[in-house]
Design a binder for these strands. Structure first.
Length: 572
RNA sequence: GCGCCUGUAGCUCAGUUGGAUAGAGCAACAGCCUUCUAAGCUGUGGGCCGGGGGUUCGAGACCCUCCAGGCGCGCCA
């Protein structure tokens, strides 16, 4: 049992002994939620605000605090003190240290994890790249938020399904083929890969401005894809293959993987029955020549399902995909990690599913995130106003490499570590703020290695590892936890003890940045501790305790970094 | 026009679901390496928490309203 739960339970017990006949007292879990951390450590480690009981007990908060303090009988766990309407708890520092560190060590690298998700499945739709477009900074958030949430849910025992819902359908691929036939060559595309495809696409749009007939040709080529024309299909599949190969390089660097690449084209032959179902259920109505689901009673514009020309639209595919995923994976939750521009779209899709009578529609969640701009301007592949992820990662790795050369010239695996640090910096920057915030990409921020950054946390981890290597040279006796009763150690222990709660909150809010913040706070607290205390000096039993604290910090940082998709080098 | 989101230090952001004196990092300046990794640590300055009302013992957080910005509002995805 962690300390917060224990305090809550003991306090709850004290309440019931003090006021046996009161019937509106909170339970253990409620009390746990009400416990808070005082703004200043001098005021205690946990605090219970008695204001909330004032009405029910018809007593002033300070009186309640006094009475609770009198009924508190667990001095060996914590000492209590009344300050106004607050009952403040001062943990028995040595036993708090012992219990916290033993919990971390007993978890064997899984501290903070759990099995509450056992038997439950979470589908995550993330990254979802477009065919024939290069991977750029606009794709980073969906990729890393999705990847991180997947690891977080895995860590809590859920079965997860990572889905890359490829953008591999639509008129643009007809245009692509048209451009290729007109100006491209096999050799050129073979050599240039996705960049060459992108260049062809840009050229198409430029030329189409003066020659509108190109648009028709593009549409004609798309029609040929739809009809299964061999040449069109071959080219289309080739483009897709090239794109996936290109993306695989980036995914490898980021450590990201998927269970399914079922994108839009996967659903083209599965939409018909869904459309029929919508018709049968009387949900489809004709409007302005198209077929829509009316959502006016939900205060939303109608959801377009079939266009005037009889073809389907992305909402149709998303509705079909959701049903397919439920039938295939029987998900308990399906997360869509997609930018907030799509907010209305998903609200419409989920509402249509609900109207179709699917009770699991409420388990579909749009995990939205903010826009990325570059130097204050909207990203635009066509205008060239973007940064390719390749270039960004390479730049970051090179910078890491040169810093290593300067600070750790004797490091054995420099390239490997440079890769870990460079990528860590980029990923950390992406996952450091609440996901709803817009990001204006800047090179200096993305490549910053000082302060609250990926390298800072990694550095702290490496520092712990270094110290533990040194500590291993000496045989240490059983730890004397009374060596960890100082303020710095206690502040650190408190952060460690809260980590499991943070993991759960991050999962409940779909918010990886909470983990980023937690590991940063722990790293800061450790670095402070490190400068205030000599770890490998003094009594051996005291050293053992300080080493155990260091090992716990290393474990929790490594776990936290893993959960946000960042590697933790042991030396740097 | 309607809907959703955002507004906290010069900049980027936290703020434990309504609690005690609003916190970090970056940038600036001043210190700390013969001692376990200085990618670190310490200190200084910097705030009508967008404005105004309201609810409450208590509001950065909740309600109303206004202001500013972003996004969206059928045949692209």
């Amino acid at each position: 049992m962690d300390m917060r739960t224990r305090i809550a339970s003991l306090l709850c017990g004290a309440m019931h002994t003090q006021w046996p006949e009161a019937d509106s007292l909170p339970g253990d879990a409620d009390v746990r939620g009400m416990l808070e951390v005082p703004p200043d450590e001098k005021m205690g480690d946990y605090a219970f605000p008695c204001f909330r009981l004032a009405k029910a007990l018809r007593m002033g908060p300070p009186v309640i605090a006094q009475k609770l303090a009198a009924a508190w009988g667990a001095e060996e766990t914590a000492r209590v003190e009344c300050v106004g309407g607050y009952l403040n708890f001062f943990l028995n520092r040595a036993s708090f240290a012992r219990e916290t560190l033993q919990a971390v060590s007993a978890a064997g690298g899984r501290y903070g994890g759990g099995d509450e998700g056992k038997g439950k499945t979470v589908c995550l739709d993330y990254s979802s790249i477009n065919i024939a477009k290069r991977f750029h900074i606009g794709h980073l958030s969906t990729t890393m938020i999705g990847h991180s949430l997947r690891r977080i849910y895995d860590f809590l025992g859920y079965t997860t399904v990572g889905i890359n819902h490829l953008g591999d359908w639509g008129t643009q691929f007809g245009k692509m083929i048209c451009a290729y036939k007109k100006w491209g060559s096999r050799d050129e595309v073979e050599e240039g890969g996705v960049s060459a495809l992108e260049a062809l696409y840009v050229r198409f749009h430029k030329e189409a401005e003066n020659d509108p007939s190109l648009e028709d040709e593009g549409r004609a080529w798309f029609k040929r894809i739809e009809e299964g024309d061999q040449e069109a299909l071959e080219l289309f599949n080739w483009f897709k293959e090239l794109t996936l190969k290109d993306a695989a390089r980036v995914y490898d660097l980021l450590g990201v993987s998927f269970d399914s690449y079922a994108g839009e084209s996967f659903y083209i032959d599965k939409m018909e029955p869904v459309i029929q179902e919508l018709r049968d259920k009387g949900l489809l109505v004709q409007s302005e020549g198209a077929w829509v689901v009316d959502l006016s009673e939900d205060n939303m514009p109608p959801c377009l399902v079939i266009k005037k020309d009889g073809t389907t639209i992305y909402a149709t595919r998303d509705i079909t995909a959701a049903i397919y995923r439920q039938n295939t994976y029987h998900f308990d939750k399906c997360l869509y990690v997609v930018a907030y521009q799509q907010d209305l779209h998903f609200r419409q899709v989920f509402r249509v599913l609900e109207k179709m009578g699917y009770p699991w529609a409420k388990d579909c969640v749009h995990v939205s995130f903010g826009m990325i701009s570059f130097e204050g301007q909207a990203l635009s592949t066509r205008k060239g106003n973007t940064v390719h992820l390749d270039d960004l990662l390479q730049e970051a790795v090179e910078k890491a490499r040169s810093i290593i050369e300067e600070k750790s010239p004797n490091l054995p695996n420099k390239d490997e570590v440079a890769r870990q640090i460079g990528i860590g910096a980029v990923v950390y920057a992406d996952l450091s703020n609440n996901r709803i915030k817009d990001i204006d990409f800047s090179w200096s921020r993305a490549l910053n290695f000082d302060g609250e950054t990926g390298p800072y946390v990694q550095y702290t981890h490496a520092r712990c590892c270094s110290l533990l290597r040194k500590a291993a040279e000496t045989q240490l006796p059983e730890a004397d936890y009374s060596a960890l009763t100082d303020d710095e150690a206690q502040a650190l222990l408190l952060l460690i003890s809260r980590f499991p709660d943070t993991v759960r909150e991050a999962a409940a809010k779909y918010e990886p940045s909470m983990i980023t913040r937690a590991v940063t706070d722990i790293a800061q607290a450790y670095n402070k501790y490190y400068y205030e205390h000599r770890i490998l000096e003094g009594e051996l039993a005291a050293q053992a305790a300080k080493v155990a604290l260091t090992a716990a910090v290393r474990d929790v940082i490594r776990t936290g970094l893993w959960l946000i998709g960042i590697e933790a080098p042991e030396r740097m």
